[in-house]
Amino acid sequence: MTPEVTLDVDNITKTFTNVRAVDGLSFSAKSGTVFGLLGPNGAGKTTTIRMVLDIIVPDSGAVRWQGKTVDGDIRRTFGYLPEERGLYPKMKVRDQLMFLAQLHGLSAVDAKKTIEDLATQLSLTEHLEKAPQELSKGNQQKVQFIAAVVHAPPLLVLDEPFSGFDPVNVEVVKNSIRQLVAAETTVLLSSHRMEQVEELCEDVCIIDRSRAVQSGNLREIKRNWPDRFIRMTQLPNTDFLKDFPGASVLPSRNGYLDVKLPSGHAPAELARAAIASGPLDHFEVVEPSLNDIYLAAVKPEQTT
C-alpha cells in the first residue's frame, strides 16, 4: 500500500504585529510516515505547528486533513505533545490520562485498557498513581507522550519529544513512534536532534527565517546533494587537496580524514590523487548527514 498524503499544508502565511512568522510555507505528510520539521529557534516551527493544530488561524493559505480544511472538530481527533509540559501538576497520572482519554471520546473501559497498555510499553506503570509534580522530567515527558497518543490519533504532532530523555528512554519512545507509524499514523515531528529525525523521518522540511529552505524526501535530498562527502585514511600530507578548488577538510572523527568535495570534482580523481600522496587503506564516498544538510541550508544568524 502506497502511503497517501493525509496532511496538506498549502502556502500558509502568518504575520504577528510587524513580524512575519511563517511565509508561504507548503509541505505534505503521508500516512504511515514521520515528517520532520526542522529549523533553528524562532524560524517559525511552533507557529506552523499551531496553525496545523488550528490553535491559530493562518492569514492566508490553508491546512487540510484528508482534503478538508482543519477545523475544531477535525483538530480534536489529533494528538499533540507540546514542547513545554502541559499537565495538571497535582492530578494523579492515571486520573489525568483517563480524563483526557474520555474527553477524546473513549469509554472508561477502553481508556483504562489503553492506558495500562501504553504505561507498560513505556515502563510507567509504577508511576500511574503519582502526581506529575512528583515525577522526573523524563517520566513527565512519557506521561505527556501517552496523553498525546491515548486516543489513537490519525495525526500525531510531536514538538521536541525527546527532550529530557536519557538514551534508553529515547529508544523506548522511538519504538512507540515506530509502532504508531506501522499502524498508519501520520506523525509530524519537530526536533533539534538530527540523529533521531534522520532515523525516523521519510520526509523533511527545513525552515529558516519563516521560509522553507529545503523540503522533500530525505533520501532524494541526500542523493541529489551537490557536495560529496569523502572519508579516507588520514594521510601525512594533504597538499593534494589544493588541486581540488573548493574542497575542505571537515573536523576529523575517529582518525579519518573527512573531506567535503564540491560538485564539479569526481571522487575518483580525488582517490587517485590521494593514492599518489601516500598509503591509502580506506576511501569511502558517504552520503551527507542530515546535520550537514541542515548546516548548509540554514544560514548562521547575521549579527549587524
Partner: peptide, 8 residues
Amino acid sequence: RIMEVMIG
C-alpha cells in the same frame, strides 16, 4: 500550558 493540550 495544559491549556494547549486541553484546547485540543
